[in-house]
Every structure is written in C-alpha cells, then in structure tokens.
Write a protein that binds this DNA or RNA. Structure first.
Length: 634
RNA sequence: GCCGACGUAGCUCAGCUGGUAGAGCACUUCACUCGUAAUGAAGGGGUCCGCGGUUCGAUUCCGCGCGUCGGCUCCA
C-alpha cells in the first residue's frame, strides 16, 4: 500500500504497517523522535495500522510548537503522574487525566486529603520514573475483560467509564500501571524532557456538583527545558497585564471586603466607564432604541411570574419588608421591561419596540466564583429588550448582529460565537425551543458567523447566541449575548393587537452586546495592557510645566484643552521633568505637553507615549487629537 | 457553595523553630527650580484580617469566621 507524506511523495509500506513502521522506513532518527502521527489531519497513535491512500505526517520531539505533538507528550506525562501517585498513596482511586491547553491534569480520589507540599514528592517520583525509563504498550480488550480488570484493581471510576464506553476498550500500560485510555501515547518516556506540576484543585467527578469532589493535579510538559522556561516566563508577563493589577496601578477601581464582588470605581475608572456608556447611548439612539428606567427592587410576586423565583433565586439578594413581603433586588432588567410593555395595550403598529436600560444589577454569585471585574456581584449590562412579532424576529436579529459587528470592530476584539441551546431547567416546550433555536441558527448563517454549539447552555427562558473572549491567563469569558425568548412574555401575558384586530403573542430578544461594562473593561484592560485608545483614556493629555514660573501658563494650556473637550490635567508637582515624564509613561498617558521658557500656545512641545516628540500649536494639537477622541462611527 | 493556598505600612514584599515588627516605592516637610522614563535629605505611618483558645507571653501554634488567589460548579 501507499501513503502520502507532507512533501507530496508516496511511501510504499507493507499491508497493516503502522505510523511507527512508516517512520522507521523513512529513517531511524525519525522513528526515535516520533511521538505521534497525523493521519488525514487527525492525531493518531503511532502503533495503529495505516490504510492505503492516507496522508500522514509524523510528529516528533522537534514539533514543540505543534499542539498535537504536545497533546501526546502531556497526555503521557499525565499517566506518569497517575503511576507516581498510585505508588506514593496506596488506596488512591484514579479518575481521568487528559491533556488540556497548556498542560494536563489528572483527577484522583485520595483516601486522605493532600496539600500542595505533596506535589514536590510526586514530582520527584515522576523524575524517578523518567530516570528508569518507561515504555507504553497499547492493547485492546473486550468490554467485559476490561471491566473485570478494573474491578480487580478496585478502580470504581474506571469501571464506570468502561460501562459507558462503546466498542472495544483500548488500554495503555507503562511499568506496572495500566490505564483505560483512548490515546494516543508516546512509545517511551524519553521525549519528556521538562515537566512541572503546577497546581492542586478540587474538581467534581464528571463535572457535576452533585457528584463527589475529587482532587485534581495540574501539570505541564515540554520537549525541552527551554520551552518550559519560555512558557513560565510568558505566564509571568501575562500576570503583569492582569486587569486587577492594572486597576490598582492605574487608579481605576478597587474592591473592599465590606462589599465583595462590587467594584469601587475611582474617578479615572469612571471616566472609562462613562465613555462606554456614551458609546452605548449614542449608538442605541441611532438604531432606534428607546432609553427607559425601571425599578431596582420588586415584590417576590414579580419574580414568581418571571420564573426567576424558581430558577434563579439562589443568585438573588432578597430584602424582607415588614412582616408580609419579600422584595428581590433585580439581577436582570427583563421583568421590569415586561411590566413596562404590558402597561398599556400594544398595536402591531408599535412594534418592534426596543427598550434599553443600563441599570445596576445585583447577582449573589457564589463566593468562590468572584474574579476582579470579570465576575462581579454588581453588574451593569448594556442591556435592551426588543419586543416584536414573530415576523419581525429575523430582522431584529439581523439588527443585533450588525450592531455586534460594529461594536466589537471598534475595539478590534474578535469574540468566538456560541449557540447555546435548551438547558435542563428550561421553561416551555420542546416545540417552542425548536423554533427559537432555529431562528438563532438561521440568523448566524445569514451573517456568515461560525459558531460552536453550547448544548444545554441556554438561559432558562430561551436559547442564546453568546460571544466569548479569552483573558490574559487563557480563561474564556462570556461577553455579549443575544437571547430569543417566547417564555417570559407569555408568562406576563404580553400580546399585541394585529391588523386582524386579534391578540397575538409577543417575542422578546434580550441582548447585551458588550455584555457588562465591568467585564468588558476588565477584558479591554488586559487586551490593551492598560494602553487604552485615546477616546477611552482617563487622562488624554498631561501638561508638565518645566519650572514653578511656568505653572500658570501651563495651567492655561490644560484649561484650554479641557475647554476643547479633552481630559487634560496638569502635573505641577515639585519634581524633575524627567520624573514627571516617567510617571506619565507609567500611567500610560497618551500625550504629554512639556511647557517651559521655549513654549507658548503657538509653540508646544508634544511628547507621544513611547518618546516621539514634535512641536505643535495648541490648535494643531486639538485638531490632531480630535479624530482620536471619539470611537469610529458605524 | 466545594477543594487547595494565602492574608504583615497606601503598593510590592522581608520577618529561622513563640519574646508586641522591617525594606523599597508611595506619603509629609525641607532644600534644589529642574527640558523628555526616578534630585537629595529628614520625618510620619502598623489592633501583623477578625474573634476565641493554648501559653508567663501569640504576627508566629490551634479552632471558627471574613476576604483574596488558583481551580471545580455556575455565569455577563
């Protein structure tokens, strides 16, 4: 038979030859370095037989940048970890241990809890395994045989996995450690040149909080020590861009234990926040949205009607009022907007009706989930509810997606779209969900937006198009969301009078495009490293008088810039010019005007962040900055 | 909420095995009046997260609570 190599050449092999055989026939060095094989684009095990006509690519220890090569390395290292743990901790039960982005983990059920210090001795044990050398053997068993093996080994989690598996079971054995595993794995442990156990965490069996919590050990591995060093350095660099750190250093916001999860916005942070609010308000007005304001607290009865009492109560702050009543602080704007819509009879001529409100929302998020600005209890969404007829749904979705494209384009952010479908605790029938999910899917297709499917991740009242962005530490956050809802308007009995003079059901599109201002600012800080575009920057121009005698004139320049609509300040501290320039750099201020004996309003020394200097009149400075001082228009 | 770690000056952090605390930056004052990334000197500042316990004595050891960090679950 023949297989095709990456350079296009054909390789002749005997029937049933494996990827490893192919590597050997090319050369012994290639075979010695081989870690896996890509067959027709998919990662596969070197031991598996190839078929005639396949395209193959041998992955080796030299493919340190190839995610597939690293997956094999890390997955095998996870097995070494499990072997070490089982030797060191008799009675431990093993669960699963896959490769993940940037590393791997393995979940264990320890008889006694372990602590982070234990990682050192586990690392040493893995080091011993590597010194001895390990070879992996692959075998396939029938399910019954595999089940018997893991029952004998008293590995209940593995037995459960075998029970759920289909077809023959593949096993990998290194040393005296055998694991249920789909593979692929290394041939031997020589390629594991650098590894590190990076963390310890609790993780529920099968990701379900109703199940037992296991202990997860995280680690990473590379084909060279240099690659590991590079990885660790990159992590350190990333931490410097952490929005929580930037928020403190740039004096944007802080948190206090008296109100966990609720940011205190400092004047400079508020300047950023307000710019986003202005963008929202201006663009909403252009697109036919109507600004409203609805109450922050509502009687429990409203939450019962909306379904929040049943589905969302644990996440709500509740206030007892007198003996009889309980009020809930709103975690979402939708119920209030339902009441507003229902406050009078609506005609088809009124639709679509687009209510927008960026009200403060409070969600009692679990303590362990709070995370700087990206997960807060005090949330402000750029929220809107679009009330429309069934016929108007697709046009309204088009409007949302167009708006979405505009707003993310401004920030040069490229979110990943996800279609989140009906969850287990949904309201409404499957037929209704078929319809709403279909509408969202069609809208995404119309706009040629590729998306992942988030099965079961929809809101309890409707499916969603979600937009996700990754933070500086590689964590994915949901930003914007567009949700199509037939449930809530029905629960509120919302209808409109059609041209036929009869009542018809109303649909609602819940949409937030930035998501929340809090999370958006957090992500934006990380993506820009705090170097915000001029229109968002808290201080756009700083004026530095050279000496005391220049303070008044320099102050007038700053004042002139403020009158022209810029956020300008004056640094007349009793410090050297060099010192004040340095501070402006550290504060990431875009433009600095140094004002001394040589300067006048017609001759300013302007320094751009980074060092470029030029001379301009005040007028030229204003004219030059003006286009940068507002976001690109749609 | 769950698992693990951590909590010392405004910030970043030192502080062996118990004897009431330090540095750099920041802040205040004074001198210098300064030209594009740190002028010098002096000074002030701490219920060592909180509450209990052990001890002659607790920042240090133990328990509980609160908060933060890394994960899990959940979510904008």
């Amino acid at each position: 038979m023949h297989v095709q190599l990456p350079d296009g050449s054909q390789l002749e092999l005997p029937e049933g030859a494996s990827g490893l055989d192919a590597a050997r026939s090319i050369g012994p060095r290639l075979a010695a370095q081989a870690v896996g094989v890509r067959v027709d684009g998919d990662l596969s095990d070197l031991r598996l037989s190839l078929e005639d006509g396949q395209q193959i690519e041998i992955l080796t220890t030299r493919n340190g940048d190839d995610p597939d090569a690293l997956v094999v390395l890390r997955h095998s290292t996870a097995h070494l970890l499990a072997e070490a743990v089982r030797r060191l901790y008799p009675g431990v039960k093993i669960a699963i241990g896959p490769a993940i982005e940037n590393g791997f983990y393995y979940d264990f059920d320890f008889p006694e809890p372990i602590a982070e210090e234990d990682l050192d001795r586990i690392e040493e044990e893995i080091g011993r395994e590597l010194a001895e050398g390990r070879q992996w053997r692959r075998e396939e068993l029938e399910r019954d045989e595999a089940r018997r093996l893991f029952v004998e080994q008293e590995e209940p989690y593995k037995v459960e996995l075998v029970d759920d598996a289909e077809g023959p079971i593949s096993l990998y054995t290194q040393g005296d450690f055998t694991d249920l595993c789909r593979g692929p794995h290394l041939i031997d442990s020589k390629p594991v040149k650098a590894f590190k156990l990076t963390g310890l965490a609790g993780a529920y069996w099968r990701g379900d909080s109703a199940n037992k919590q296991l202990t997860r050990i995280y680690g990473t591995a590379f084909f060279s020590k240099e690659d590991l060093e590079t990885h660790l350095t990159r992590l350190e660099e990333a931490k410097k861009r952490d929005h929580r750190r930037l928020g403190r250093h740039l004096d944007l916001f802080h948190f206090d234990e008296h109100s966990p999860g609720s940011p205190f916005w400092h004047p400079k942070g508020m300047a950023v926040f307000n710019q986003l609010e202005d963008l929202r308000r201006r663009e909403n007005a252009r697109r036919g949205y109507l600004e409203v304001k609805t109450p922050l607290i509502y009687d429990k009865a409203l939450w019962v009607t909306s379904g929040h009492w049943e589905k969302f109560r644990e996440n709500m702050f509740l206030i007892p009022v007198g003996e009889e009543h309980v009020y809930g602080i709103k975690p979402m704007n939708c119920p209030g907007h339902m009441l507003l819509f229902g406050s009078k009879l609506r005609s088809y001529r009124d639709l679509p009706l687009r209510y927008a409100e960026a009200a403060p929302l409070h969600r009692n998020e679990l303590a362990g989930t709070l995370h700087g600005l990206t997960r807060v209890r005090y949330v402000t969404q750029d929220d809107a509810h679009l009330f429309c007829t069934e016929d108007q749904i697709s046009a309204e979705l088009d409007g949302c997606l167009d708006y979405l494209r505009y707003v993310y384009g401004i920030f040069e952010l490229e979110p990943r779209a996800e279609l989140s479908t009906r969850p287990e605790n949904k309201l409404g029938s499957d037929e209704e969900w078929d319809f709403t999910e279909g509408e969202l899917r069609a809208a995404l297709d119309r706009h040629d937006i590729s998306y992942a499917l988030g099965a079961g991740e929809g809101s309890f009242y409707g499916p969603k198009i979600d937009l996700h962005i990754t933070d500086v530490l590689g964590r994915s956050w949901q930003m914007g969301t567009i949700q199509l809802d037939a449930q809530m308007p029905a629960r509120f009995g919302l209808t409109y009078i059609g041209a036929d003079n009869r009542e018809h059901p109303v649909y609602v599109i819940h949409r937030a495009l930035l998501g929340s201002f809090e999370r958006f600012i957090g992500i934006l800080l990380e993506h820009t490293g705090g170097d915000l575009p001029l229109w968002l920057a808290p201080v756009q121009v700083r004026v530095i008088p050279v000496g005391e005698s220049h303070a008044a004139a320099a102050g007038a320049i700053a004042e002139g810039l403020r009158k022209a609509g810029f956020r300008a300040d004056l640094d007349d501290r009793d410090e050297s010019v060099g010192r004040r320039i340095r501070d402006a750099e550290l504060e990431k201020i875009s433009r600095v005007v140094v004002y001394g004996d040589k300067e006048s309003a017609d001759n300013l020394a302007v320094r751009e962040r980074g060092g470029a200097q030029s001379r301009k009149t005040l007028h030229e400075l204003v004219i030059g900055l003006t286009p940068l001082a507002s976001p690109p228009s749609s």
